[in-house]
Amino acid sequence: MMPQMTPSLVHFLIVGALLFACGILCVITRRNAVGVLMGVELILNSANINFLAFAHFSSQSLQGGIDGHVFALFCIVLAALECAVALAIVMAIYRNFNKTIDMEELTTLRE
């Protein structure tokens, strides 16, 4: 059977999954703390795609559809907030760990 070509829920979910994988890859391989943050943003975006895809394709009522949008909105807001706080932490790290934001050198968690 030919896979369906017109975009459906599954297509959006696959894009979300790939975006998520890129984000994870970014988080676990980057050395630069800012790079890691970018990965986190990718992950949050993939979550948003899923929210809206389900809202658009699956929810039975209009209200349920709007709930997905509201969650995505909250998600965006929290992502922006997270970005602000995390970058502040990065700046603090930069100042307190000898002018570096290299994740390889931030190993104080082991102590």
Partner: peptide, 17 residues
């Protein structure tokens, strides 16, 4: 052995994944 506890977050995340 102490090396297994690297203190690197990405190791922890990667291993969890």
């Amino acid at each position: 052995l102490i090396k297994i506890q690297t203190g690197r977050l990405r190791h922890y995340l990667g291993v969890a994944l």
